[in-house]
Simulated scan of single mutants.
Amino acid sequence: MDTGWEYLAEAHERLRWARLRAGYATAKAASESLGMKKDTYSAYEREPGKSKVTGLDHQRAIQFGRKFKVSWEWLLLGIGSPFSGVQTTYQERVMTAMSDAPEEEQERIAKAVEALLRTGTNG
């Protein structure tokens, strides 16, 4: 398990770590997936004191956190872990299915999921 995130003191370091962990090898790849210019995104990853640096604010932390599947609080402030309160893709699928189901079906679905978790599955 990657625990290198524990030693990242600055928001720009945490952002870079999150981008790389999410599979975006370059700032350009991340910026394209976010629909922004490379220079705009890169400014968030620049070290303070460098030219053309942009400090991370909570709006961008939320946007980048969603994209890179990390906690925006951790990204912005270093609070908790990158995974605090972040849903996995599977959890997101279950939540979407639940929210799309009629209200009367949601209880049945919840009980079915709970039963599956209690008994376990083999594939």
Rank of each mutant, 00 (worst) to 15 (best):
L56D: 13
A110Q: 08
K67S: 06
L75T: 10
V53P: 00
W17N: 07
V70F: 01
Y7S: 04
A9K: 02
W72Q: 14
E13N: 12
K111L: 13
M95K: 12
V53Y: 13
R66Y: 11
K67Y: 01
T88D: 07
T89Y: 08
A43T: 01
S81R: 04
K50A: 10
A110W: 05
Q63T: 13
M36T: 08
P48Y: 10
A11Y: 00
S81Y: 15
S84L: 04
G85P: 13
Q106W: 01
G80F: 05
D100P: 09
P82G: 14
V70A: 02
Y24T: 02
R14P: 01
M98F: 06
G78M: 07
A101I: 01
A43P: 10
S84H: 10
A115C: 08
T119M: 12
P48F: 14
R108D: 06
W17K: 04
E45Y: 15
G23M: 04
L20N: 01
A18W: 00
A18T: 03
E10V: 14
E10G: 09
A43L: 14
A29V: 15
K111H: 14
L76Y: 02
P102I: 02
H12G: 05
E114L: 03
G49E: 08
L77Q: 04
L116V: 12
W17M: 09
A61H: 00
R19E: 07
T54L: 13
T119Q: 08
F83I: 11
A22F: 13
E32P: 01
S51Y: 08
A18F: 15
K67G: 05
L20A: 10
K38P: 01
S81A: 15
Q87P: 02
V113H: 14
T119W: 11
W74G: 00
G85D: 12
Y7E: 09
F68S: 00
L8Q: 03
A112F: 11
F83K: 12
T119G: 15
D57R: 13
A22P: 09
L56A: 09
G65L: 13
